[in-house]
Simulated assay, not measured.
Amino acid sequence: MNQNRVNELFGAAQALREKGIPLYMQVKKAILASISAGRVLGGDTLPPERDLAKYLDVSRVTVRRAIDELVKEDVLTQRQGAGTFVSERVEQPLNHLRSFTEVMEARGKTITSKWLDRSLGMPHEDECKALKLSAEQEVVRFYRLRYADGKPMALELATIPSRYILNPFAMEGSLYDLLEQQGCRPVRAFQRLRAISIDEQRAHLLDIPALSAVLYIERTAVTQDGTPIEFTRSWFPGDSYDFVAEIHNTV
């Protein structure tokens, strides 16, 4: 990265001489300011540590500490052998029932999927409970790795009673589009969210380190008459999403 580009991204080096503030915090502040100003965008590569250290007239240890802090806060992402990148975060409202495809397409991203399982079978205990099924009622399962602009963004395992979709190979794109075509698109859902450490197999699929913190979501969606139709479990990389909700005062 040439000197002009570093100047463009990070402004005047003398700005990092604020009294009483540790240098690594000033480097961190400069990086955050560049991201906030849109000079560095999600997915952009940060200049090498040695270039930043030289330009900002600080040690590489100082730059590395600032970057390590931002990696811990999921502002930056480091990839072995590729460098340090600005994390690409997707803001996803929790008060709107939308499919992954709808959320990503609204942001102009190209959606692709890798199928891990499409099958017809008997329900597991948690699926029976969520979908209010007996152990003898068949379900279809759709398990896939979802990409946006070529980046792994989510693992989704959806279970649907087979009376709505008998052939698991009938779905290629959006599950909600297929359900809508059959007149049974869900209209509301209950979601449970929690942070977990991801196992090695799923971490490999998402291209993140094993035991990384991810957001795990269980969603049970119902039709207009309140019938459960979808039970989906999703794993989202922690550095890729901001889930937001509007909260009202009920007093």
Rank of each mutant, 00 (worst) to 15 (best):
Y164T: 06
V140T: 11
L157V: 12
Q182C: 08
L155Q: 03
R146I: 09
A170D: 13
R185Y: 11
G183W: 09
Y143Q: 09
L145K: 05
M153G: 08
D126P: 08
S174A: 09
F169L: 10
L131M: 01
Y164M: 04
L131W: 06
D177E: 14
L178R: 14
Y164K: 07
R185N: 11
M153Y: 07
P161D: 05
L155F: 08
R141L: 01
L157R: 14
Y147S: 04
G183R: 09
V140P: 01
E127R: 05
L133V: 09
P168D: 05
E180S: 15
R144H: 03
L155K: 07
R163V: 13
D149I: 00
S174I: 10
F142S: 02
S174D: 15
I160W: 01
L178M: 15
T159C: 12
L131I: 00
A135G: 10
Y143K: 13
I160A: 07
P161N: 06
E172V: 12
G173T: 10
C128E: 15
Y176G: 05
G183E: 04
A158I: 02
R144K: 08
F142A: 07
A130N: 10
L145E: 08
L166I: 02
A154M: 13
L178E: 15
R163S: 10
L145S: 02
L178K: 15
E156Y: 00
K129M: 15
I160L: 08
K129S: 14
E172T: 10
Y164H: 11
S162Q: 05
Y164F: 15
E180K: 14
M171E: 04
N167S: 01
R146P: 01
S162N: 08
D126T: 12
T159I: 15
R144D: 03
Y147T: 03
E180L: 12
V139H: 03
I160V: 12
L166C: 09
A148K: 04
A130P: 03
C184H: 13
S134Q: 14
A154S: 12
Q137P: 00
L179S: 10
L166F: 12
Q182I: 09
R146S: 02
M171W: 05
Q137R: 09
M153S: 09
G150V: 07
N167H: 03
G183H: 02
